[in-house]
Design a protein around this nucleic acid. Structure first.
Length: 672
DNA sequence: AAGTATTTCTTTTTT
DNA sequence: AGAAATACTT
């Protein structure tokens, strides 16, 4: 166990008042949080079950749990809450669902479900969607929820007709969700806050439960999340929040880095501790990071420093086009690995948008470089998993129309759009869910006999499976379900290759195993997990991550800049250093360069030893060749810390100054 | 209703 | 260029 430096130590031991820790990149903030939890339990005598540590990602929560587990013994940390904001909210809703008018087994709608619901809703109500995008409306509603603005308020405070119209849709959207016994992601935070406002006794109960609170990545909290923290913490103000305004890269989903400054006003006795020593990067990398980020305005000034050596210059590599760029990175990794005896896992390639990974992935395969991609498609967005989850959701919550529609004809039950249209119409007129409408006597007169018969056969099968789920062994019933519907055959029909079908089926079995595990884990514990809870909870849990953890094999990491936050690698590549990509086009248009610069900052500070940045002189966009402009951020680096390659005469000038560069660049090019 | 051809749109970032 | 939505056949 490393010794803490004096600042870190102070942050750990300061527990008598509100504390804000400004933790620069690589300053050991996770250590501080974990050690502080241990300190609170062991030195301050606060039982683990009265402490809550909140993070933003499952990964961070899992890592923290693991690290706490290593330094605090099991008995003392029992009941300790280490979870994401969303998971904490889910627990609250689960426990208080009756107050909120929800039934056990409620569903969580992901972004896709929510979008489908909106689409359907707008089609049904004659809300002619003139011009503005569905996803625009979805975003607006989401931002209102994040700002704790309810439909009525959104309507009265609407600034134009468009907002007024969306506010009306928002109201209907919430009603539909309620009718489906479903909540969306934003509700997971919003509903507890609304409940706490309404029912002081429920709030009091949670305040007794959580006596000390720690929040990681505090700059990423939105209005609603901050409100939740504030309510739980109240005047007792027993909390520590850790954050770094320079790493705020989630403003687009409602994060308010101003929450850092706000804290000072809401809690005048707030103590502020800065962690400025970086234990990760070479001092040159740090100097670059500091110089670049200095172009942003700051509320809290901080200067990262490092005891490490200066290290290599930062390389900037110009490539002819995007193909050459991907090729160069792949060969560069192979070459570097061989020359310096490194592992694949020592390398990471970072990019702005997920689509940039496609070409690189092809090159990696061509050179047989093992790689791991994250930030791409998550486990739960895979089609087979969405199907499976929809079946499970339907079993637990038959009113979940989104789930019903997804699986009613998968695999083929010869129930087509026409039949569903009739059912939908009828259900709407009766104001019941699709599933319940089927049991209705009046259905005969509104739905063609053939279709109705097929629908009812399906409904009957769901009913029976549902019964068995509660009488038999649930996992066994679920396994049976997939055999019943001959899902494997269906997969084979609808997959490109038999191999892909097998892979997809494996994903299904993995999902089933996870349910088994969740049920086993909860056995005998205070919070015994029922099958309903397990299924609800699954939506929030990213199992892809767990899976990756299992094989910690030697692979090059490929991730988005966003996904790279909190991670570190010896050798980092950042690709696509171009205007319209790294300062992303949309951000340039909105004039939000500062957030892009923070993204750049996050990228730079991931690197321990070397950092290489690439850009393509021309690139195909939407199938058209475009001449590119190197990113403005390249100009913000200290000139003497950069070594340019592939830039013609400019290249030679730079290389003559530094000597050896050209030769090794040539060797690199000839390397494969 | 299912399968095939054509057209249109896409590229931020994620709990 | 590629995916996804839509139109057109069987």
């Amino acid at each position: 166990m490393n010794k803490l430096n004096p600042r870190q130590n102070e942050a750990v031991r300061y527990a008598d008042g509100p504390l804000l820790v400004l933790a620069g990149a690589g300053s050991g903030k996770t250590s501080v949080i974990t050690r502080k939890i241990a300190y609170l339990i062991e030195q301050k005598g606060i039982p683990g079950r009265h402490i809550a540590a909140v993070t933003f990602t499952n990964k961070a929560a899992r890592e923290m749990k693991e690290r706490v587990g290593r330094i605090v013994d099991r008995g003392k940390s029992r009941g300790l809450i280490v979870s994401t904001f969303h998971n904490l909210g889910l627990n609250m809703i689960r426990e208080e669902h009756a107050h909120l008018g929800y039934y056990p087994g409620f569903s969580i709608f992901d972004a896709e479900d929510a979008k489908a619901l909106l689409q359907d809703l707008m089609l049904r109500e004659d809300t002619a969607d003139e011009g503005d995008e569905l996803s625009d409306i979805q975003m607006t509603i989401s931002s209102w929820k994040n700002a704790m603005r309810r439909p009525e308020e959104a309507y009265s405070k609407a600034e134009d007709e468009r907002e007024q119209r969306i506010a009306l849709i928002y109201k209907r959207y919430n009603e539909y969700l309620k009718a489906y016994n479903a909540v969306d992601f934003d509700d997971l935070i919003l509903l507890p806050v609304l409940l706490f406002r309404e029912c002081p006794d429920v709030l009091a109960k949670w305040r007794r439960k959580i006596r000390y609170m720690l929040v990681d990545e505090y700059q990423d909290t939105n209005v609603c999340q901050y409100e939740l923290v504030k309510m739980l913490v109240a005047e007792r103000a027993a909390f520590t929040v850790v954050g770094d305004d320079d790493q705020s890269i989630y403003a687009w989903r409602g994060a308010r880095p101003e929450n850092l400054a706000q804290l000072k006003q809401d809690f005048p006795s707030l103590k502020i501790i800065k962690l400025e020593q970086n234990y990760r990067s070479t001092s040159r990398i740090l100097r670059c990071a500091n110089t670049v980020i200095a172009n942003n305005p700051h509320v809290f000034e901080k200067a990262l420093w490092s005891e490490h050596t200066v290290g290599n210059e930062i390389r900037v590599i110009r490539c002819r086009n995007e193909d050459a760029e991907a090729e160069r990175i792949a060969t560069e990794i192979l070459d570097n690995k061989l020359k310096n005896g490194l592992e694949f896992r020592d390398f990471a390639v970072l990019y702005r948008g997920n689509h940039q990974s496609r070409l690189l992935e092809m090159k990696m395969q061509a050179y047989q470089i093992p790689y791991r991609m994250s930030g791409g498609q998550s486990f739960f967005s895979k089609n087979e998993i969405k199907d499976a989850m929809s079946y499970l959701r339907l079993l637990v919550n038959p009113d979940d129309d989104a789930a019903f529609l997804r699986v009613v004809n998968v695999p083929r039950r010869e129930i087509g759009p026409r039949t569903l249209e009739q059912l939908n119409h009828y259900a709407r007129s009766r104001e019941v869910s699709l599933f319940r409408a089927l049991a209705d006597m009046g259905a005969e007169s509104h739905i063609a006999e053939r279709g109705l018969e097929r629908l009812r056969r399906f409904a009957h099968w769901v009913d029976r499976t549902c019964e068995r789920l509660h009488t038999d062994n649930p996992v066994h019933v679920i396994k049976q379900l997939f055999t019943d519907i001959e899902y494997e055959e269906w997969l084979h029909q609808h997959s490109a290759t038999p191999k892909q079908a097998e892979r997809r089926m494996e994903n299904i079995w993995y999902l089933v195993e996870s349910i088994q595990r969740m049920l086993d884990d909860g056995k005998g514990t205070a919070d015994e997990t029922g099958i309903e809870d397990a299924i609800t909870r699954l939506v929030l849990r990213d199992m892809m991550e767990q899976r990756e953890e299992e094989d910690d094999s030697d692979k090059v990491q490929m991730l988005t800049l966003h996904a790279s936050k909190g991670l570190e690698f010896p050798h980092v590549f950042i690709m696509g250093m171009e205007e319209e990509i790294l300062p992303h086009r949309a951000s340039i248009e909105e004039g939000n360069i500062e957030e892009e610069r923070r993204l750049m900052y996050v990228g730079i500070t991931r690197a321990r030893e070397t950092l290489s940045m690439t850009y393509a002189a021309s690139r195909k966009q939407y199938g058209e060749k475009i001449e590119t402009i190197p990113s403005r951020f390249l100009d913000e680096f200290p000139e003497e810390d950069l070594r340019w390659e592939g830039t013609g005469d400019l290249d030679q000038e730079a290389n003559q100054k530094k000597g050896k560069a050209t030769l090794s660049a040539l060797l690199g090019d000839l390397g494969v």
